[in-house]
């Protein structure tokens, strides 16, 4: 019963991807035609998609930016989440409110001033903005961590403190190891965001320093706005592979969760 449900769901979830894959194998003339199966699959589309979007240059850039952003955001957000979950200070309530409010702000509003900010700092065209964004953390992830830390019992931390460990050490040695599901979720989410985001690179980077996400949206155009959909489909499939790989690695930690550590 469970099997059947999962199997059908998976089939349904895979169908659009299958359609995307079939689209990736179409010849140009078939793109706007109603046939489902390409008459003769054009495997070369994947090669063209790879070269046209300059994967060999753009892929390392995307990996670097998404990796740096994911690592830094996860770290600084976990810190902030821990601070919010465990300590009270004047202003802690305000920080919590601001966190929630920050999530309600549509990103579009910040584009122009953000550019002006980085232009003033001389960081347009560099990768430093991703470092700074990462260090600043992300409100969603901070709240995610806070919720996880709140639900973890405090006994171990308290006994470690009694043993003479400092708070930073407790955080590092006792709390984080129990938080693998949250860490894994955060890593995958933040990596996928930076990986998929194209407004920021479009705003701040040049064609020869930009990310794969931007290259995908512009590289397959015959004419601007008139994209070769078969190549875009092929490129998109290639583009999803690194995030999928990360998920496959992370999913072990998602489920082999805190209780395993606690009872182990």
């Amino acid at each position: 019963m469970t099997h059947l449900l999962l199997f059908l769901s998976c089939a349904l979830f895979l169908a659009p991807l299958l359609f995307l894959a079939l689209g990736a194998l179409e010849s140009p003339a078939e793109q706007a035609s109603p046939n489902l199966l390409p008459e003769r699959p054009v495997w070369g589309n994947f090669v063209r998609a790879f070269t046209d979007a300059d994967f060999s240059e753009r892929l390392p850039t995307s990996l670097l930016l998404a990796g740096v952003y994911a690592a830094l955001t996860t770290a600084s957000s976990a810190c902030a989440g821990y601070g919010l979950a465990r300590f009270r200070a004047p202003g802690s309530r305000l920080v919590l409110v601001l966190l929630a409010l920050t999530m309600m702000i549509p990103g579009v509003i910040t584009l122009l001033p953000t550019y002006l900010l980085f232009a003033k700092l001389g960081l347009v065209g560099t990768y430093w903005p991703w470092v700074l964004w990462g260090l600043g953390g992300n409100s969603y992830i901070v709240l995610l961590f806070r919720q996880f830390f709140v639900s973890i019992p405090r006994e171990q931390e308290e006994s470690a403190l009694l043993d003479g460990c400092g708070h930073l050490r407790v955080f590092w040695r006792v709390v984080l190891p129990q938080s693998r599901p949250a860490l894994a979720a955060s890593a995958v989410l933040t990596f996928a965001w930076a990986w998929g985001d194209w407004t920021a690179p479009l705003l701040l980077l040049d064609a020869d320093t930009t990310t794969l996400a931007v290259a995908l949206t512009t590289a397959y155009a015959h004419e601007p706005g008139h994209t070769a959909d078969n190549l875009l489909a092929a490129g998109s499939l290639l583009y999803t592979l690194p995030v999928l790989a990360l998920f496959l690695v992370a999913q072990r930690y998602l489920t082999a969760g805190a209780y395993a550590v606690r009872t182990g």
């Binding site: 600084s76 957000s77 810190c79 902030a80 821990y82 601070g83 919010l84 465990r86 300590f87 009270r88 200070a89 802690s92 920080v95 966190l99 260090l135 600043g136 953390g137 409100s139 901070v142 708070h167 955080f171």
Partner: peptide, 9 residues
């Protein structure tokens, strides 16, 4: 400690 942990954010 609270300020230390939340400062980056």
């Amino acid at each position: 400690l609270f300020y230390l942990f939340t400062l980056p954010w």
